[in-house]
């Protein structure tokens, strides 16, 4: 075979090998994102059920309970967490669908990272809802002040941690946006 022939053969082998490796990476990234989304969906579903149970507990609450003001404030904050969780889950799904069709492997990775970060936000938001509903349930059940203090503190800390998780997501998005904006 002439020299040009060998070169053409080597290029063809490299292209085929590169394509195969790329497809494998795309698939692994899609799987990672899908796994994160499935996990987030499960927690969102648990939160949805907890809200149904929490609503029933609210009807049993004495209007003059000392904890009513605290619950009111928590519900306002938790409502936002729920909205964020649902939106983030949708964002995770949208990101995941773009992984396999991304033009380059690095862009596919960016969508996978965004999808996973969104799934983490969905999980944390839904977990805050669960914590809040657990608190409501305990107040309605007449739990001791000590245990209500622990539960209330946990909800407040969960809210703070969830906000930090969202800030991390914003950084993920900003870094990737800056990266792809300049190209």
């Amino acid at each position: 075979m002439r020299r040009e022939g060998w070169i053409a053969l080597l290029v063809a082998v490299a292209v085929v090998a590169g394509t195969a490796r790329g497809e494998g990476s795309y698939s692994a990234m899609s799987d990672d994102a899908a796994q994160a989304i499935a996990s987030a969906e499960m927690v969102v579903e648990q939160a949805r059920r907890a809200m149904g149970e929490g609503k029933a507990c609210l009807d049993r609450l004495a209007p003059d309970s000392e904890r009513v003001g605290e619950i009111k404030s928590m519900i306002v904050a938790t409502s936002k967490e729920w909205d964020e969780a649902v939106l983030a889950l949708d964002g995770a799904k949208r990101g995941a669908t773009r992984v396999s069709s991304a033009a380059t492997e690095e862009l596919a990775n960016a969508y996978s990272v965004l999808a996973k970060a969104n799934a983490a936000i969905a999980r944390s938001g839904a977990n805050v809802v669960k914590a809040n509903m657990a608190f409501v349930e305990k107040v309605a059940a007449g739990a001791t002040e000590n245990s209500l203090d622990i539960a209330g503190m946990s909800v407040r800390d969960a809210l703070a941690a969830s906000k930090r998780a969202r800030e991390n997501y914003e950084r993920v998005k900003r870094i990737l946006f800056e990266e792809y904006k300049v190209k």
Partner: peptide, 18 residues
């Protein structure tokens, strides 16, 4: 973000078992 989410989850368990 994932670890912060785990921190939230740990608090959720605390609220549930209290």
């Amino acid at each position: 973000a994932e670890i912060e989410g785990m921190s939230v989850e740990a608090r959720t368990v605390m609220a549930q078992v209290a």
